[in-house]
């Protein structure tokens, strides 16, 4: 239990959190680690590429039916035996998705005995920490490593910076910054400088590759569908970096001027 890694990957919506999470999960599973991925986005799209494109019933779907939920109802085994769970949520514009995450996480914690045996648990969270519920995994002490994913563009960096502000407000340390490339000039350098300026470090640079989207369309991770590709190796290296990382620091967010400066 002490060595268990429980990570959350934060970053702007659409920046690549879910595809990074599922590829890292698959790579760790290949290494023999017991892995669980918990999708906390009401879109419930975190684990699709580990399940051959299949959508699974979400915790909140079942709670909504008012039935007693068991472990078998919500935990599904995907590629490399990665345990896949989706929190789910209300339709956009209805109810309270934040409360949904709180309730679902609690349900999962209560009924899922397997969680204790995992070497790695990845919480794939929605893009913006819009309210208390979205940091429930952290606040309930379920996450011990937080990562921020960003490209070298201004808006994703702006979002990453905001997330750092939020993390320091809730006294949460940051274990590293991951750059998911959008092929911007000097991108690696920009994100590395950002990471260092906030008091963290760059743990991986993932290039932008069409193959990621091709595999995704067919319902797979690149680890599964294109294990020989260069980018598969990048995900493997990232997976290893995450499993062996023991550094973290409370991030200090940058002011807007400094942020613009970086990307100029």
């Amino acid at each position: 239990m002490g060595k268990q890694k429980r990570i959350a990957i934060y970053g702007k919506g659409g920046i690549g959190k879910s595809s990074t999470a599922s590829n890292v999960a698959a790579a760790c599973a290949d290494e023999g680690y017991k892995v669980m991925i918990i999708g906390c986005d009401p879109k419930s799209d975190s684990s699709i590429t580990l399940l051959g494109g299949r959508r699974i019933p979400t915790i909140l779907d079942l709670l909504r039916l008012g039935v007693e939920v068991t472990e078998e109802d919500i935990v599904f085994h995907g590629y490399g035996d990665v345990r896949c769970v989706e929190v789910g949520g209300p339709e956009p514009g209805i109810g309270c998705a934040g409360r949904g995450i709180i309730v679902a996480i609690k349900t999962l914690k209560d009924i899922c005995k397997e969680m204790d045996d995992m070497d790695l648990i990845i919480y794939d969270v929605p893009g913006d920490i819009v309210c208390g519920g979205f940091v429930a995994p952290i606040k309930k002490g379920l996450v011990n490593d937080a990562y921020v994913l960003t490209s070298g563009e201004y808006m994703p960096l702006y979002a990453a910076n905001n997330i750092c502000k939020g993390l320091s407000k809730i006294d949460t340390r940051l274990s590293g910054v991951i750059c998911n490339s959008r092929s911007v000039t000097r991108e690696e350098e920009i994100v590395r400088r950002f990471a260092e300026d906030i008091g963290s470090k760059l743990v991986a640079f993932i290039p932008k590759e069409q193959i990621v989207q091709d595999c995704e369309r067919d319902g797979f991770s690149v680890i599964e569908k294109a294990p020989g590709s260069d980018i598969a190796q990048v995900y493997r290296d990232l997976a290893q970096a995450i499993m062996s990382n023991s550094d973290s620091a409370t991030p200090t967010s940058l002011d807007d001027e400094r942020l613009r400066e970086l990307t100029r």
């Binding site: 309270c96 934040g98 409360r99 709180i102 309210c131 208390g132 519920g133």
Partner: peptide, 10 residues
């Protein structure tokens, strides 16, 4: 307070 995710321990 519970709906907005307030933590009592902090």
């Amino acid at each position: 307070s519970m709906i907005i995710g307030e933590e009592l321990s902090e």
